[in-house]
């Protein structure tokens, strides 16, 4: 029993019939094949599935796709592309802000909203505001450096 879902994803109008149980992350990954958004925990803890819903970072494993009805969703695929990275992505590359990269799309999406709210974030602010994202590899130091640099680059 499908319900029609219409929304904008990365600037493109999308419409599909979905089972009400479909999570936003399942819709993005399985229906739209936007596999840059990852599933780490599937319990709202790790932030790997972070996307923007009307410019606000949310955990897409903890929302139904239908909760995005009529909304504008941006995923990691929507902010930059190979050869033309978003300044925050470029900062992660330049500062070695990732190792395996599994957590990275979610952290970058959170960091983009963080930088809009705090255009000159201190390291302490970045650490506090990264509460909703877990990384198993890096120990966070380079992620924090990358976000401070990425926020500075976003102002230019």
């Amino acid at each position: 029993m499908g319900i029609n879902l219409s929304l904008t994803v990365n600037g493109r109008a999308v419409s599909a019939d979905v089972d009400p149980r479909t999570l936003l992350v399942q819709f993005l990954r399985d229906h739209l094949r936007l596999t840059g958004t990852h599933v780490g925990c599937d319990t709202g803890q790790c932030g790997a599935c972070t996307v923007h819903l009307n410019d606000r970072a949310v955990k897409s494993c903890n929302l139904l796709a239908l909760q995005a009805q009529g909304a504008s969703v941006t995923t990691i695929e929507g902010i930059g592309e190979p050869g033309k990275l978003h300044p925050m992505q470029e900062a992660f590359r330049a500062h070695h802000g990732l190792q395996c990269g599994f957590c990275t799309p979610g952290i970058v999406m959170n960091a983009v909203e963080l930088a809009r709210k705090h255009p000159n974030p201190s390291e302490d602010t970045v650490r506090a505001e990264l509460d909703g994202n877990l990384c198993r590899c890096t120990g966070y130091h380079n992620i924090v450096k990358a976000i401070v640099a990425g926020a500075a680059a976003m102002k230019q």
Partner: peptide, 9 residues
């Protein structure tokens, strides 16, 4: 409360 993503929803 929680973290940014939880507060946004």
């Amino acid at each position: 409360v929680g973290d940014r993503q939880v507060r946004n929803a």
